[in-house]
Computed example of a mutant assay.
Amino acid sequence: MPANRAMTSTITIPCPHCDALNRMPAERRGHRGTCGRCGKRLFTGHPIALDAGRFDRHVAAADLPVLVDFWAPWCGPCRAMAPAFEAIAGDLEPAVRLAKVDTEAEPALAARFGIRAIPTLALFRGGREIARHSGAMSQATIREWVAGHLTA
């Protein structure tokens, strides 16, 4: 390797469509690339649905933070917060991936993370939970809460 070329660090971003792990130069982190396997956009501006099979692929294997909404279809506060969570996805991506876990369909995931109230937002970085909030939040509050925990 020539001496004038610095080593470029990479980040890993799972595809929200086919779950393939994509690597991109860290300096391109703010770009909305496409998947090397399926060719679809890596960031859609919408939360992705995670089940037990996809959870670790997107949370533990990714180099970007993931904000997970643990919710249930019968939960009134969950349904009330859903539009705000959907809308904030376009604002936070590509810096943060947003995901949803239906606790009724995925009780093992809810148990694994000790989810006792819904909606519960959990923020993960490097596969580890770094913050949690139970209860519905507005779009502005979600943005401030995430920013506060990622800059800390």
Rank of each mutant, 00 (worst) to 15 (best):
L21A: 13
L21E: 07
N22C: 08
R23C: 09
R23M: 09
M24T: 10
M24W: 08
M24A: 11
M24S: 09
M24V: 10
A26M: 07
A26I: 10
E27Y: 12
E27D: 14
E27N: 06
E27C: 08
E27V: 12
R28W: 08
R28F: 13
R28E: 15
R29G: 07
G30R: 14
G30E: 15
G30Q: 11
H31G: 04
H31E: 15
R32V: 03
G33W: 08
T34K: 14
C35Q: 15
G36F: 05
R37G: 11
C38P: 07
K40E: 14
R41H: 12
L42M: 13
L42H: 04
L42P: 02
F43N: 04
T44I: 15
T44Y: 04
G45V: 14
G45R: 06
G45C: 12
G45E: 07
G45A: 07
H46P: 12
H46I: 12
P47L: 03
I48Y: 11
A49G: 12
A49P: 08
L50S: 06
D51I: 08
D51H: 10
A52E: 14
G53R: 09
G53C: 11
R54S: 10
R54Q: 10
R54G: 08
F55R: 01
R57K: 15
H58V: 14
H58K: 03
V59W: 02
V59L: 04
A60H: 06
A60L: 07
A61E: 15
A61I: 14
A62Y: 01
A62W: 00
D63Q: 05
D63W: 01
L64M: 11
L64H: 03
P65A: 15
P65H: 03
V66Y: 01
V66W: 00
L67Y: 00
L67G: 00
V68S: 01
V68Q: 02
V68P: 01
D69K: 01
D69Q: 07
F70G: 03
W71K: 03
W71G: 03
W71L: 07
W71P: 01
A72M: 07
A72N: 12
P73C: 13
P73V: 00
C75I: 13
P77S: 06
C78G: 04
C78V: 01
R79W: 06
R79L: 11
A80H: 02
A80T: 15
M81S: 02
A82N: 04
P83Y: 11
P83L: 15
P83K: 06
A84I: 13
F85Q: 03
F85E: 03
F85I: 00
F85G: 00
E86I: 07
I88R: 00
I88L: 08
A89S: 12
G90M: 10
D91T: 07
D91H: 14
L92R: 01
E93L: 00
P94K: 04
A95E: 05
V96Q: 00
R97K: 14
A99T: 00
V101M: 05
V101N: 05
V101K: 01
D102V: 02
T103W: 00
T103K: 02
T103E: 01
E104W: 05
E104T: 14
E104H: 10
E104S: 11
